[in-house]
Nucleic acid binder design. Structure first.
Lengths: 339, 339
DNA sequence: AGCCTGAGGCAAAACGTTTCGCCCTCAAGG
DNA sequence: CCTTGAGGGCGAAACGTTTTGCCTCAGGCT
């Protein structure tokens, strides 16, 4: 059915070895080069990945494993990364763990079976099963967003503590003394770090910013953010400002805030992650913005380096800075009437 | 490095053919079966997909090509589908077209190179390049959400016209005479159909529902919905109700609506697609809900049938019904004071 | 007893590449 | 004029499966 080297050999009179050399960028005389190009075009030739993979034990393919496909952060990451990897000549296989460590392990096995040259992973939890299998076969791994506890691999993360702390500073400076954090369970690295950043900021401003952390973490979802917001506002002394620890919480809290309407007791909200959302809401809210594209690019470059054997030292962790995009003053300055 | 049949042969004394038979579900005596199982476990054997694919010209893998990874609808589809396909023993390779027909064609080529057994696609536009290549190699294709103009393939779509029309009926019954549709450009099948459904409903209620269609379609994005909403409200005679033609528009319009606050002239909004959102907003809005999981399952079953050769007739189109989840009356009944 | 049948097993030939070792040729240096 | 070395090419041997055709053996049938 499909054309093979043999067909090209028949048309050009060259040997399989020479043809292979051509398709792998080796040295071939100009005349032969042209000959092969013509034959390949005429035959509609496409190299057979299976044969190539079988023989050479490598595929020009990288794997991406996402904790949750259904999340803006992850899909943005994967879009940016796929683009960068394509430039480098690699195809990308995307897998969805659906929040399950088991599915995650299965995905890694699947990818190893497909002989991917490397794996980029946004892990579900602190531990990732199947990393040893990857290490065994020499498949490099780069983690994104979270570090991995049970395996030493490269990682690209953001400075979560400073991110949240900077939001707190802004609020403290704007007169707030009762700030709350809307965050998810401590079971994930990011939430732990963000909560830590919050605590540190609180400590630094002791007396001035006696903030209350949300004691019962919510599920990480829009609904969780919505419920969390309402629970906070029902406290005896509700916070005057709320820092959201991720995108879903931001959306949920914003919806709940809007329901309050123009209420003098409505808290200030600092959102997280998604600048698109910030662009839309008026007055402009303040947002902690992750350098998503940069995260993806750095991760892509790290995995490529490992794959190409350009980096052989121990695991590296890249920490990227977030940006605090300050919105309209009215959205975060504590009104005198409220204090 | 990795174990092969030869290693198993060494341990069991059986021939490669018998071992192959075992791994492909053929008849092997109980004693030999046990022998092989033990050897495989001890060796940590995993079948080599490349060798298998090379020899058998098929892979237990299906491809999914998404117009846009960054969309709730698509990611939900892919999650549900992957689960179903995994049950059937297939792995899934996900590709993102990023809204580009060119990237889409490239993805199809990539998948064909990976010898996928079939492709499920959420097309970017009406035409899909590369379908002929798939047809040539006998790779079946199933389209989701949209039909494909330049190729006869199976499709799973929803009844877009009735979906929008039913929303209009509800509004007409609730007293509205000025209803608008917030829809995207006619370049995509879904938007054309939804607009058509809107027009039909308007015609059916002539005199009673002289609705105005948004004449300048917006880009399909949250921002588009936000801007569209505001433009509609700035008309001399703004609509009293707005039907949103997809999720992004719904979100954008909702944000714009919230900005208005509890204004008597605020229009009723019927949302589209995402029940999670509807669950969160209070008072509960009315939503046109797509049976997303069902769409995914049907598509999975159709592609599996084709792959297994159980369906050989011409292309089939499955049309699924949407559901109109009616929200709190206050969100859609035309207040007397407004009429 | 002879025959037929079907199950289970085997050896060997693919599948389409890459790669190893070898050869030829041509040019430059001695 | 001989030597050397490198560039370019070649044949053949992998890579790890599946598949084909053939063989054997046991058991049921006439």
């Amino acid at each position: 059915m499909a054309a093979t080297y043999k067909d090209i050999r028949r048309m050009t009179g060259l040997s399989l070895a020479t043809i292979s050399k051509y398709f792998n960028g080796g040295n071939v005389t100009y005349a032969n080069r042209v000959l092969i190009e013509h034959a390949a075009r005429d035959l509609g030739y496409r190299v057979n990945d299976f044969a190539r993979g079988l023989r050479s034990r490598r595929s020009m393919t990288l794997g991406v494993v996402l904790a949750e496909l259904n999340s803006t952060f992850n899909t943005t990451i994967v879009s940016a990364m796929e683009e960068r990897l394509r430039e480098a000549g690699y195809g990308t296989i995307i897998c969805d763990s659906r929040g399950s460590s088991q599915a995650e392990a299965e995905s890694i096995r699947f990818l190893i079976g497909k002989m991917v040259a490397g794996i980029v992973i946004v892990p579900v939890g602190d531990d990732v099963e199947g990393l040893d299998a990857a290490a065994e076969r020499g498949v490099p791994v780069v983690a994104i967003d979270r570090t991995i506890a049970n395996g030493a691999v490269d990682a690209v993360v953001i400075d979560n503590r400073t991110a949240i702390a900077s939001a707190c500073e802004l609020l403290a400076g704007a007169g707030h003394t009762k700030v709350a954090l809307l965050a998810g369970p401590d079971s994930t690295f990011t939430m732990r770090e963000r909560r830590l950043g919050f605590r540190e900021a609180v400590k630094r401003h002791t007396g001035k910013l006696p903030a209350r952390a949300l004691t019962q973490p919510d599920t990480v979802s829009i609904e969780g953010g919505y419920d969390g917001f309402r629970r906070l506002m029902q406290l005896d002394a509700p916070p005057t400002a709320i820092v959201c620890a991720n995108y879903e919480f931001t959306l949920g809290a914003t919806i709940a805030l809007n329901e309050l309407g123009p209420d003098a007791s409505a808290p200030a909200i600092v959102g997280f992650d998604n600048l698109d959302l910030a662009r839309i809401i008026r007055p402009r809210p303040t947002f902690v913005v992750q350098p998503v594209a940069q995260i993806a690019t750095r991760a892509a470059e790290m995995i490529l380096q490992r794959v190409h054997g350009e980096a052989t030292e121990g695991p590296r962790t890249v920490v990227l800075d977030t940006e605090l995009v300050v919105g309209d003053a009215s959205t975060y300055v504590l009104a005198r009437s409220r204090s």
